[in-house]
Design a protein around this nucleic acid. Sequence first.
DNA 1: TCTTGCGTTAAAGTGAACTTTAAAACAAGA
DNA 2: TCTTGTTTTAAAGTTCACTTTAACGCAAGA
Lengths: 162, 162
Amino acid sequence: MLYTIGDVSEKTGLPAPTLRYYDKEGLLPFVNRGNGGIRKFQDTDLEWLRMIECLKASGLQIKDIKRYIDLTVQGDSTIEERRKMFYKQIERVKRDMWALQNTLDMLTYKCWLYDTAAALGSVEAVKEIPLGEMPENIRKLKEKIAKTHCSSFRKCGEGSGK
Amino acid sequence: MLYTIGDVSEKTGLPAPTLRYYDKEGLLPFVNRGNGGIRKFQDTDLEWLRMIECLKASGLQIKDIKRYIDLTVQGDSTIEERRKMFYKQIERVKRDMWALQNTLDMLTYKCWLYDTAAALGSVEAVKEIPLGEMPENIRKLKEKIAKTHCSSFRKCGEGSGK
DNA sequence: TCTTGCGTTAAAGTGAACTTTAAAACAAGA
DNA sequence: TCTTGTTTTAAAGTTCACTTTAACGCAAGA
């Protein structure tokens, strides 16, 4: 089964110019061309695109993804480097998830705050509520947020470099 | 306790020019100035910066964060809009975490694949292993990844706009 | 008093990942 | 064959969030 760039765009949700951009950056060396120079995508190419999206979601830049593609093209001699790359990305994604969980804690607390402020008519009134009168889950959330405090700056879950 | 921009930079890990940039973009309307025009940060300002970092981590752009700051400055009449904003961000962060979990699944599978390829000496050899001979957790992972397949394109956990 | 090291600003530059434009070639149906 | 819609390319433009530069001012210690 062969697909044009328009088909692939529709299937993946990626704009056709983005697919061409990926190709230009060397991310799609396996995509064949018809005799008029028109790209002919296969189902395996869609798999590659899924992998590319996954690596992007894990925080890799285009040039890092190209590096992976290049390694793959080189074959079995690069297994070890690719293996290391995936282990590294796992660590990064775990850090990102931890950071997102902290963010979620903060947002959840704020939702309670604004729910209560909406009910009381003022934000100040909420800030005057003693810890003892807050719902227990909110109190625990506050404590957790306070603990994370120190580590929340000094970017623990960031960094786009290698 | 008052801090210079250098102190705050050190405490937060944010470069001083970044703090000035935030200020210029209207994210720090509450920071006072000394008579030489020098910024005097307070502990409450550090709290604001934490909140800004949190909102950034939740996927808001600078201009959206400014909107939140502006609403806060306007006072209690904007409680409802702020409340809605936080609920919306919670939904977004949950989607992002779900997407990261899928990414993690894929990376975990790939780690197994390259571990095994390293042991066998070739990637092809791994691809020939029948499902029945894979470790159960890997088999389950593969199934989960296959299910996610369809939804993995058509960006379920992205979009930076409103 | 002079130097050093902070602070200030406006403005220009950067890097990443697209996105848009323009001009031309192709492919399929009437 | 002609038309219409899709494809091709190179190149320029866009957006975001900084980052760097340049020129200048204040304040404390030698």
